[in-house]
């Protein structure tokens, strides 16, 4: 019970201090809006909007979560206010869950910006909402944890930005968002399958257009696996690097 009070207040604080601050809202929303406009306006027919939706949703989440978490964490480390959290009687796993939950929620909200745009341009009937929500959640979780992993590996805010771009841009091409994985050159395909976004995007394709190419259950299991491994790695790094 006591821990949950702390959890809730850390989440609220991050929301108020970062995610709901005007510069960050725009920072977070600029990406999904830009992606949406860029892809949707180019496409001619309503069918194309639906085709593009899984990729645009994935990108919105990826860019929203990774930058925001990496930047806020490095910022709090620099101002040393993060030490307050480490000094509180909160289990480290629990604390890091509290810190990431805000970014996960933020990523999920970002996901709905393109959905909203798409609904204005085409009919979204026949959408499989349950797997779609599951995928949005798990993409947000894995991307946030990727951001956490980056935050633990860098010292400065600008490094966090650079380092996350190093991951993000290749993922646009490798994860089957707009170019199907099956059409990639053979030597690149193994890379696709070690990136969590490939599996999340596949669920989205299934839920929106019934054209995923991997088994749904496999996708979910792999995403959960990625989440667990990334979280464990990040915690290990927090212990090694932040508790000196």
């Amino acid at each position: 019970m006591k821990s949950w009070i702390a959890f809730w207040n850390i989440l609220l604080k991050d929301m108020r201090n970062y995610y709901l601050k005007p510069p960050n809202i725009s920072w977070g929303l600029v990406f999904p809006v830009a992606w949406t406009l860029m892809f949707f306006l180019k496409s001619q027919t309503p069918v194309n909007v639906r085709e593009l939706l899984p990729g645009v949703i994935s990108l919105s989440i990826l860019f929203g979560t990774t930058s925001v978490l990496a930047v806020t964490l490095t910022f709090e480390r620099r101002s040393r206010s993060f030490e307050r959290l480490l000094l509180a009687p909160l289990d480290l796993n629990f604390l890091m869950l509290a810190k990431t939950s805000g970014a996960i929620l933020f990523g999920m909200v970002n996901a709905f910006v393109p959905v909203l745009f798409a609904s204005l341009m085409t009919s979204l009937s026949g959408l499989q909402w349950i797997p779609m929500l599951g995928a949005i959640f798990l993409i947000a979780v894995t991307s946030t944890l990727l951001g956490l992993f980056i935050a633990v590996s860098v010292k400065e805010v600008f490094e966090a930005q650079t380092f996350s771009n190093f991951f993000r841009f290749p993922m646009i091409f490798l994860c089957g968002l707009f170019i199907p994985v099956q059409t990639l050159p053979l030597f690149l395909r193994p890379l696709s399958y070690i990136l969590p976004l490939t599996y999340g995007a596949d669920i989205l394709k299934f839920s929106i257009n019934q054209n995923g190419h991997l088994a749904l259950s496999l996708n979910f299991v792999v995403l959960l696996g990625f989440a667990t491994v990334l979280f464990a790695l990040s915690i290990r790094n927090v212990k090694r690097k932040w508790i000196y």
Binding site: A6, W8, N17, R84, L85
Partner: peptide
């Protein structure tokens, strides 16, 4: 945060 919010947040960390 202002002074009051800072104190309340720190107290919340201890449940």
């Amino acid at each position: 945060f202002d002074g009051f919010e800072n104190l309340c947040f720190c107290a919340a960390l201890y449940g």
